[in-house]
Write a protein that binds this DNA or RNA. Sequence first.
DNA 1: CTACGAATTCAAGTCAACTTGAGGTCAATC
DNA 2: GATTGACCTCAAGTTGACTTGAATTCGTAG
Lengths: 147, 147
Amino acid sequence: MKLIDIGDVSARTGIPASTLRYYDEIGLITSAARHGLRRQFTPDVLVQLALVAMGKTAGFSLEDITRIFGRDGSPVLPRDELRRKADEVDQTIRDLTALLDTLRHVAECPAPSHLECPSFQRLLRLAGRRASRAHVRRRGASKPVKG
Amino acid sequence: MKLIDIGDVSARTGIPASTLRYYDEIGLITSAARHGLRRQFTPDVLVQLALVAMGKTAGFSLEDITRIFGRDGSPVLPRDELRRKADEVDQTIRDLTALLDTLRHVAECPAPSHLECPSFQRLLRLAGRRASRAHVRRRGASKPVKG
DNA sequence: CTACGAATTCAAGTCAACTTGAGGTCAATC
DNA sequence: GATTGACCTCAAGTTGACTTGAATTCGTAG
């Protein structure tokens, strides 16, 4: 079984080595061995990291992600919990679809204030219904790494 | 024009008053008047907050959201920037759809480790392609308020 | 065998988005 | 006109997810 050096994982995924160490520390990924001091990973780690990326996109915490896709690809959570998580994602997709419509509208509509535009209003009524039951704490997202 | 007391906004939206004050402070929403010391808002604020909720769901920072839907419903960003943001959301939706498939699979598939299941592998290959160009910093989401 | 570079540990720092707490203010009620 | 209770301000604290920096340890190339 060929192992991948942490530096290579970092290079292939674009994730800083410091982050990979951090993920290892919190048990989100697992290093398979050491070459001297250096962490080495099985190729699986690339899959795991893909799952992590998806989970983050969905707004799950790293802790949630750890439980959803356990360290070896088998989840820690019971099936019905997983179904609940899936439903959350499903709802998030609906919300984002509403947002997408709204955004596209805002980008194209020439009205001076959108709050007066009837088509915008309609979008908002849809969105508002969702929003009222969706007060979640989410902490800032930003650019794909500063540069 | 009837105004809404901050307490009522909080009650109707479920957003703590402290958060509303914070949003006011950073210019994400605008209080219309004061009743004594108390902030009062126009009903518009409920719409604004709905937009904020959508924006957060999409993973935008509060600063981004402020620029996307300016204080009065007219965006600060130029149209092409907005279109770019819309495209980001569009991509996020695609990513989440992949995640949803994966999650639903994980929830139902009886295989001991999913890393071996061919159908899971296929999902991951799809997801992985996205993930590799989507290394974003996003900070933890969690439960709808501790209680 | 020494030097180099890349990775290591560990503690501390950063950042966004809030929350908490102390002490103060007001409008309305008793 | 004193009390109440919801709101106020302002500074400081918290949390999750990392990053940074100093001092250290290896494996390999020269």
